[in-house]
């Protein structure tokens, strides 16, 4: 589904976005993700396609706000039956039960929202939205109201069910974990849609600095193109000349060089940079380190690497920025 919307208030926003399967609109808070969802649901005035100009009750859209907005005075079944008002009472209950079944929670039918966990509330809200038979599902920050500890497990199953139903879904989120599991990702910043594509592409080849930061590039530094040869770029950086893969940028072009924390290594002949490990901390199963030299770098180390190299704080090391993982982003001239 192609979305083309223009919003003036409360945030000025104009964008064209493809929604393909489970699509995540990634962006910091305040860039207008929720505003776009509300506009699509008809809750804010906007121009564009689809659903242009229709009041919310006439749009075939399933909208889930961050809080899920279950009606506290109705049971789970009552909530799901709410959009089925056009059916006779008996049929309405049967149908509502089917939608609960679809989300795997028919055993919670008689429960009231206050007696449900965050994840269960989300499923009731989804069942209710599905009962509307939507052409498009809109989820506002679907992982933010879930328990951090069980978030991945809880939402993975929901995602699985949504995929099977095949309804185009647009989720607004700042959650990188969620975006990695999407079929399609759009990146929204204050200046508009920065980039869209399959997550593999957006995450490894961010087109702009803003996107790079958003998808988790912790190490970004300025450089300039010196030479282009055999499909490789040679770049002038504070750490001398570094080699990177990438399209042929014009010589002299200022660029940003980015490398993910987990891609900074210690083995290899090219792009060796000498410096000191100024900090080393255990972090979950591995470790986090800070490298100080001509470049300041964040590193994520597996425990294995850490043990094998016997790394310690204050130690002089040479890190390797593998040309395959060094990503080039155009900078402003």
């Amino acid at each position: 589904m192609e979305i083309s919307y223009r919003i003036h208030h409360p945030i000025a926003l104009e964008l064209n976005l493809t929604v393909q399967g489970f699509t995540v609109l990634l962006g910091m808070s305040g860039v207008g993700k929720s505003t776009l969802l509300k506009a699509l649901a008809g809750l804010l005035p906007a121009e564009g396609q689809p659903f242009a100009g229709l009041p919310p009750e006439r749009r075939r859209v399933g909208y889930l706000p961050q809080s899920f907005a279950l009606f506290p005075h109705l049971s789970a079944l009552g909530n799901v039956a709410f959009p089925l008002a056009h059916l006779p009472p008996q049929k309405r209950r049967v149908k509502a039960r089917e939608y609960l079944e679809l989300m795997g929670i028919s055993h919670l039918a008689e429960r009231y929202p206050r007696a449900l966990s965050g994840g269960q509330q989300q499923r009731v809200a989804l069942a209710r939205a599905l009962a509307r038979e939507p052409q498009l599902l809109l989820l506002d920050e679907p992982t933010s109201a879930l328990d951090m500890a069980t978030r991945e497990e809880v939402f993975s199953e929901v995602l699985e069910r949504l995929r099977r139903l095949g309804i185009p879904t647009l989720a607004a989120s700042h959650d990188v974990w969620l975006a990695q599991r999407a079929d399609w990702v759009g990146v929204l910043s204050r200046s508009g849609l920065e980039q869209q594509g399959p997550p593999a592409q957006v995450f490894t080849h961010p087109a702009t600095l803003e996107t790079a930061r958003l998808v988790g590039f912790r190490n970004l530094f300025e450089a300039r193109v010196l030479e282009v040869q055999d499909g490789f770029l040679y770049l002038e950086t504070p750490a001398g000349v570094l080699k990177a893969q990438g399209r042929a940028w014009p010589v002299g072009q200022p660029v940003w060089l980015g490398i993910r924390s987990e891609d900074v290594g210690f083995e290899g002949l090219e792009n060796r940079v000498a410096g000191v490990l100024t900090a080393l901390q255990a972090q979950g199963g591995g470790g986090w380190a800070h490298f100080s030299g001509p470049l300041e770098l964040d590193l994520l180390l597996s425990r294995q690497t850490q043990d094998r190299l016997g790394l310690e704080e204050g130690q002089a090391v040479e890190v390797v920025l593998d040309p395959r993982y060094l990503h080039v982003i155009p900078g402003s001239p």
């Binding site: 749009r59 909208y63 706000p65 907005a69 709410f82």
Partner: peptide, 27 residues
């Protein structure tokens, strides 16, 4: 009254009078 409740009720196909009758007044 949470504003999201009213907004969501509208997206679920309820007209304003129905939102008053079935959401706002009961709460």
């Amino acid at each position: 009254l949470e504003p999201d409740l009213i907004a969501t009720a509208r997206t679920l196909g309820a007209s304003l009078p129905r939102v008053w009758r079935e959401v706002i007044l009961p709460l």
